[in-house]
Design a protein around this nucleic acid. Sequence first.
RNA 1: GCCCCCGUAGUUCAGAGGAUAGAACGCCGGCCUUCUAAGCCGGAUGUCGCAGGUUCGAAUCCUGCCGGGGGUACCA
Length: 741
Amino acid sequence: MLQHYEDRASDLINGVLEELGYERQELQLRPIPFSGSWGTSLASFPLASKIVAAEHAEEFEGLSKKELKKRQSGLVREKSLELADAIAERLNGGVIGQNGASAISRAESVNGYVNLFFDTSTVATDVLRTAIDQGADYGRGTQRADKVMVEFSQPNTHKAFHIGHTRNAALGNALANITEFAGFETIRANYWGDIGMHVIQCLWCYQSFHKDRRITRKLRGRRLGEYYTEAVQRLNYRKDVLGLLHELAEDDALFVEKIDAIVTEMYREDGVCGEDVAYLLGQIANHREIDEDKLFEPMSVPMLLKYVGPQLKEELAFVREHGPQEAPPPTSRTANVRYPPPVVTIENTTERIARWKRLNATPEWWPEVPEWQQQIKDTFQAWERKDEELVALWEETRQWSIDEFHRIYDELGIRFDVEFSESEVEEEGRQIVYDLVDRGIAEMSDGMPVVDIDKALGLEDKYRTLPLLRSDGTTLYSTKDLELTRRKFEDFDIDRSIWVIDNRQGFYLQQIFKIMELWGFDQAEKCFHLGYEFVTLPEGMMSSRHGITVLYEDAMKAMRKRALEIIEEKNPDGRLSDEKKEDIAGQVAVGSILYLMLSRDNNTQIAFDMEEALSFQGHAAPYIQYAHARACRILERAGELPDGPVEFVDLQPEEIDLIQKIAEFPEEVTQAATEYRPLVIADYVFELARLFNDFYADFDARPILNADEPARSMRLTLVAATRQTLENGLALLSVPAPTVM
RNA sequence: GCCCCCGUAGUUCAGAGGAUAGAACGCCGGCCUUCUAAGCCGGAUGUCGCAGGUUCGAAUCCUGCCGGGGGUACCA
């Protein structure tokens, strides 16, 4: 909100420039970047550079590039110092203060910069009064004409909600909060992934293996997620077992070394047929893949699997003692397998033991796999012909998931104005595809409709080709997205639509937008993809297939528990009721998970570390929430805020920095909204809290409640303005602002 | 192969072409009989991946290379 003062400073400087015989110009003013200095500054280099170029044009001609640079840079430096001196001198020599009381108190020239200092009393009064008087609206932008839709979250039903989904939800929600606060009418949209192969797999697993199990209402959503994971694991059982064995053959030198002994024992103990033993030995010893069709006995591979675990455990002990073991140099057969050269380490062996444990728990799955795969195909067929029983089951279970998601959104303080779902746009999407084919925009290729976008646009290798239906006529994600896009603009009369989706879908979304454009949908250019990188775990990529995930529910539970422990520890005196403590713990946990997701740039991957998430110190939500609670406490103790005009004199550097930060809030909101970056606000509230703690910490230098007037009123006003700004900033992130902690 | 993203302190990350590149975590040492110690103060740590270029001025913009991740027609 200092724009007004910066404009004033610009005017003053331009006036001086005119007096000095230069033209008025658009000046780039920036805050003085030093702690305790409050004002705005002008770098005189650009102007000096122009002047030097004009004055020395002749001299510069014919110089070599290097000489020119050297000469120029010296001259510009000299000129800028001179210029800054001249400007500052004239400003101080009468310009400042000419028109009665000015908000600029004095000027200074240093290193080629002209610094104009604000009259702290005038500007501080303005800033703090504005923040307090505008209250929850402090920082709000003026109402704009544009209507924006933010689509986010898009969870798949029948799957678990994990912390990766939380990043999307946190990001989209904060973005919607911010665009709304910045003045754009905002529609929050969700899009359920309620049909598709994952649903079929989940339903198959439920029907085949868990139909009679009683599930409590509370656990329904969670169980569905588990069934999906189980389905994937059952269906991929053979692939996963062979995958593990192949990996070992490929780069586990210790394992390959021992394979002879292992198969020999297996032959003796389990009586596996000799041909299979010989085959397995040959493949592994030569670092080759195992082809299940070449085996005679159905259970040979699971038999071998049994021996893998003990061997890996021995290797782990060995590696612990002797350090990582390198794989043998590649032979001609294996030369192209991988890069970098594989090594047996504690990490990969530990990871492999975990995989082995899971696989070895269910060897009886091995012979069942082909049959299951057929069942899945049948289930999909049943879905396509709208089999009544299956559809009824789908409707019921779909609701279980949606109920679960709504509970999570409620907990996180996230809401939606409209909920789309894949199932509802499927048919209309198909119609759009037919229309695209009719108009010759889509063509048939390999039995399915596709759009060769590059061909249509006369480009090469840019947008490539996107299929719009499977060759068996079933719909794809793309089929549905076409209708979804149409519906957004035509049913909701929006001017812009933002898709908050994982970066991995960036290319795909560009294809969709282009196809809409080819279809003649003008608003295609109003579609934006806001991408972000995924959340990983310390042990690598999250994968529901391998059971490597952290569920939202589990993370939340752990954080809530930890928060409660700290609250108990800090409030032993019974001042807070148990209910209140639970409430605060929830606010801390919710705030922490949201802040964690929002305090990193969209383009960086977040490695979710539970340990780190549970450390409520430093750069995390509780730090900011704590500052807010502190401010609340002070204000509560103070009773009434000073009523009349408050004098802001003798401000200390800590106070000036804090006021300056408060003043920056509206601009930060604008920036976050234009750049679609909640991170700007996340950083801002942390900085604000930090400056507040700085201000608060030194009791001797800056008492608040016990201070004499006018300092007491001044500091109380400052505390109130800080609290309000913290609250407004946190609200944009949906991070709760507890009044007591 | 082509396209996108990332590379900054031991670690996790900020960093509107501008002044002395900042936080947090971790480590060491201090501060609770006074407004909440989830806090504050002090100490150490940087070839801003490498090489060129643009510019008066580059962590920031451009080009190339190296390293990591992702994408690249019937997954979403």
